[in-house]
Simulated scan of single mutants.
Amino acid sequence: MPIMDFLTESHTAMLRHEVKLYAEIFVNAQGERQYISLESNNIALFVSYFDNTAYNSFFFSCYPLQDITRIKEFGYFYDAPSSYSIEVNGGRETDKSRELIQMRMISKNPNKQIQSFYRTFQRNLKNISGLQKHTQKKYYYLPTEKIIIPANPHSQNTRDHWEDFCLSKIERVE
Rank of each mutant, 00 (worst) to 15 (best):
Q156H: 08
Q113K: 10
R119N: 13
F121A: 06
R159G: 04
K146F: 01
K137R: 02
N111R: 06
T158A: 04
E163K: 13
G130N: 13
H134R: 07
L131D: 07
Q115H: 05
N157C: 14
K137N: 04
Q136S: 14
Q132H: 04
H134F: 03
K126I: 12
H161M: 11
R159P: 05
E163V: 01
R119L: 14
L125Y: 06
K146S: 03
I147M: 07
T144L: 06
R123D: 15
F121C: 14
H161R: 14
K146M: 01
L142K: 03
W162S: 15
W162K: 15
L131G: 09
T135L: 08
R159N: 09
N124E: 15
Y139F: 10
K133F: 02
N111A: 09
F117Q: 06
R119V: 13
K137H: 00
L125G: 08
S155E: 11
P150N: 04
T144N: 09
F117G: 03
I128P: 02
K133V: 09
Y139C: 08
R119P: 04
L125W: 03
N111D: 13
Q122S: 11
I114P: 09
Y141C: 07
K112T: 09
Q115P: 08
Q132Y: 08
D160I: 05
T158H: 12
K138E: 06
S116Q: 06
